[in-house]
Write a protein that binds this DNA or RNA. Sequence first.
DNA 1: GGTTTGACCCTAA
DNA 2: ATTAGGGCCAAAC
Length: 106
Amino acid sequence: MNFYQRVYETARKIPEGRVATYGQIASLITTPRAARVVGFALRILPAGTDVPWQRIINSRGRLSIRNPFFSPDHQARLLKKEGVEVFQRGGQWWVDLEKYLWDVRL
DNA sequence: GGTTTGACCCTAA
DNA sequence: ATTAGGGCCAAAC
């Protein structure tokens, strides 16, 4: 089981209506500072994957995605559909981490 | 072994 | 608010 596989595996554990950060995922797997690699793993996902990539955002609650196939608008729409509040400020999408960050202990 | 590439993260300006 | 720089780590050459 390589690092990417573990990223996907962990991502699937994120409950609907919650979000996780890149750093959080990295911490759960191996090293807390491998956040960049998590992003890389998600970046190579095929369109239509069953991995809930939209639930993974950056540490400040922003949608930092840039991939045209997985646009921020798309991600925001998916999150809203799951019940996550998403705010738009200055063309940037935000999520209230205080409310929606995934607590692994749950 | 080394270099390059990031959907990151933190700090400083 | 934005930008720049450095550090970080795994994968792919």
